[in-house]
Simulated assay, not measured.
Amino acid sequence: MKQIGIVIMILGLGLTLFTAITFFTREKVVDLGIVEITRNQPHYLNWSPFVGMAVMVIGGFMIYLAKKR
């Protein structure tokens, strides 16, 4: 349980430091037989740094419970 708590705390730290992810999907614009025109459509996934802090608190609580036993 202690190892899981450490992994959750590291995940929370990553969520706190990196508060956005950008990824791209390919979208077909024109399709004229053998001619095909596509473009990359960006998508943004944002979250608050407080989410990462809450995840770190949960991980710390799990470590605390493991030490208490």
Rank of each mutant, 00 (worst) to 15 (best):
M1S: 12
K2N: 05
Q3M: 12
G5K: 01
G5E: 01
V7A: 15
V7S: 10
I8A: 14
I8L: 14
M9T: 15
I10H: 03
L11V: 15
G12L: 00
G12C: 07
L13C: 01
G14R: 05
L15C: 12
L17Y: 12
T19P: 10
T19G: 06
I21Y: 13
I21Q: 05
F23R: 03
F23L: 10
F24D: 11
T25K: 11
E27K: 04
E27Y: 02
V29N: 03
V30A: 08
D31I: 09
L32E: 05
G33T: 14
G33L: 15
I34K: 10
I34T: 14
V35L: 15
E36Q: 13
I37Y: 13
I37C: 04
I37L: 14
R39A: 14
Q41H: 08
P42S: 15
P42H: 01
H43W: 14
H43K: 07
Y44T: 12
Y44Q: 05
L45I: 08
W47N: 03
S48M: 02
S48I: 04
F50C: 08
G52R: 00
G52Y: 00
A54Y: 09
V55I: 15
M56L: 01
V57A: 15
F61Y: 14
F61Q: 05
M62V: 15
M62Q: 12
I63V: 13
I63P: 02
Y64D: 09
L65P: 00
A66W: 00
K67W: 01
K68Q: 08
R69G: 07
